[in-house]
Simulated scan of single mutants.
Amino acid sequence: MRLTVEVGRLKSESGEVTVTVYPSDPSRFLAPRGKLLRLRVPASAPTTEACFNLPKADIYAVAVYHDANGNHDFDRNAVGVPTEGYGFSNDAPSRFGVPSFDSARINVKSGENTIRVRMRYGK
């Protein structure tokens, strides 16, 4: 199974885009050490692409962030508001905190799969 993640609406080409794939266990979504796979790819505005070879056809979820300063951390301000761009599979809403696994879940089938994730930036 191959999953291509196209991350769009990047504001700049600085740093990297970190793309993380989570397995079908909702308790692992966005949890420390919960990831299945992660790639850090050079940012390419307006769209950056990452490709994964997945172990099987299954349900997954994807989270991305634009690590513009390249420090391998998702930076936030003093009150916890993200200062770097981010996004989720299905463009899952995150208006009042992180989205649920169910809102970000995708069905990866045998063969080639492509999803698009829209980068969001704070105001």
Rank of each mutant, 00 (worst) to 15 (best):
T4Q: 14
P82E: 03
R33H: 12
R95V: 09
L10C: 03
I59W: 00
R95A: 13
A57I: 08
P42A: 12
G87L: 04
D67P: 06
R118E: 13
R38W: 07
Y65N: 03
E6P: 01
V64D: 05
A92C: 12
V108S: 04
K109I: 10
P42S: 12
D102G: 02
P26W: 11
A50Y: 00
H72E: 15
A63Y: 08
R105V: 02
M119W: 04
D67M: 02
S89N: 10
E49I: 15
E49V: 15
V19M: 03
T114L: 13
V7R: 04
A45M: 06
E16R: 03
Y86H: 13
N69E: 09
E84R: 02
P93K: 10
S110W: 06
F29S: 01
T48R: 00
S94W: 03
P46F: 11
L54S: 00
G80T: 02
G15P: 02
N71W: 09
S44H: 14
H66I: 10
T20M: 08
S24R: 11
R9P: 01
G80L: 04
I115T: 01
R116K: 15
Y86Q: 10
G8Y: 00
M1T: 15
V64M: 09
L10A: 01
S89V: 05
P32H: 13
S44Y: 11
S24K: 12
R105K: 15
L54G: 03
T47I: 14
R116E: 12
R40F: 01
Y60D: 00
M1S: 06
L10H: 00
Y65W: 14
Y86W: 15
G34Q: 08
V7G: 00
P26H: 10
N90L: 13
G87E: 09
E13N: 10
A43Q: 08
N90C: 13
L3D: 02
S44P: 02
V41N: 03
T48P: 00
V64E: 07
V41K: 04
S14P: 01
L3V: 07
V79I: 13
N107I: 05
V79Q: 10
V64Y: 05
T47E: 12
Y60N: 06
N90M: 11
V21S: 05
N113F: 04
V81G: 09
R38P: 00
I59S: 03
S14Q: 13
F88I: 08
H66Y: 08
R105A: 13
Y86D: 04
H66N: 12
